[in-house]
Design a binder for these strands. Structure first.
Length: 272
DNA sequence: GAATACCTGAGC
DNA sequence: GCTCAGGTATTC
């Protein structure tokens, strides 16, 4: 599934392939993916040229301009199963809900579970203005992050998933970050020293950067479309490994439900 | 903060 | 045929 590293790769690919291109047409199979009417979407972006692609957390914002009207900003969230790829001779299956025609290439939006959204937003390209979303996890400084999390009373698992504190971590990377930091998913900020919280912050950034470097947990190729488990999956230490032996101490990885999510952790290495 | 809605497919 | 998977908006 797309996580921050895949979203980053998608944003990089869109920027590389679409900057300067004009959108000539938009086909819509399932309007529910759009956060506004089909007509409003077409009015805002068809005939416009892409002049910027930005990522913030798991959001992508594409800037469209036509030189006369104010720019339009299309915000994309892939949620669980959204995929974007560029392929000219692709025969769309039933999960392809949107097809964007540019001069010279075709971009498909495919989404098995239809959770993803593409919506027009008012604010300018800089995506940190999304009100309910905190600073990007890769960008946020420790002092800022600590100030946003240290007074909260919820378990660390829930707080790291909370996009309002910092945006970008999903279930996989939260479990991995907590494992690397040796922090139990039920531990609360007040249970932890400032040094321990610094470890969580530092290792969360590291695990995200490492995943980006390895092509993400899900591999998505824009030219030869496929979305399947990528190189980073085999590097995961605890996620999806309940019942297996911990790579550090050998004891059995356990699974627990925290904040409505499955949480895999090592009961020996991760303490409150 | 927890529960639920949104969806479909995989795995039992 | 049931449960589970999971990000976010919404509603308790």
């Amino acid at each position: 599934m797309p996580e921050l590293p895949e979203v980053e790769n998608v944003a990089l690919a869109l920027r590389a392939h679409l900057t300067g291109r004009k959108l000539t047409g938009l086909k819509v199979g399932y309007p529910g993916i759009l956060g506004q009417s089909v007509a409003a979407t077409r009015r805002a972006i068809v005939g416009c040229t892409i002049d910027g692609v930005h990522r913030h957390g798991k959001y992508i914002i594409i800037n469209f301009t036509d030189g006369r009207q104010p720019d339009s900003h299309l915000m994309i969230h892939l949620r669980m199963t959204g995929q974007i790829f560029i392929l000219d001779d692709y025969i769309a299956d039933k999960h392809v809900h949107l097809t964007f025609d540019f001069d010279g290439l075709t971009v498909h939006y495919r989404d098995i579970r239809k959770f993803g959204r593409l919506q027009l937003v008012d604010h300018a390209v800089h995506p940190s203005i999304i009100a309910h979303v905190g600073p990007d996890m890769l960008e946020v400084r420790f002092k800022v992050w600590h100030g946003r999390i240290s007074h909260r009373r919820a378990p660390m698992k829930a707080l790291l998933l909370d996009q309002g504190i910092a945006a970008g971590l999903g279930n996989i990377y939260v479990d991995e970050s907590l494992f690397l930091a040796g922090v139990h998913p039920l531990a609360k900020p007040q249970d932890l020293s400032k040094e321990k919280l610094h470890d969580v912050w530092r290792l969360a950034k590291r695990v995200l950067r490492n995943s980006i470097k390895h092509g993400g947990t899900t591999f998505m190729d824009f030219k030869n479309f496929h979305g399947k488990p990528g190189n980073f999956r085999r590097k995961l230490r605890v996620y999806g490994r309940a019942g297996e032996g911990c790579s550090v101490c050998g004891c059995e990885i356990e699974s627990l439900r925290v904040a409505g999510r499955s949480s895999c952790f090592c009961p020996e290495c991760q303490v409150i």
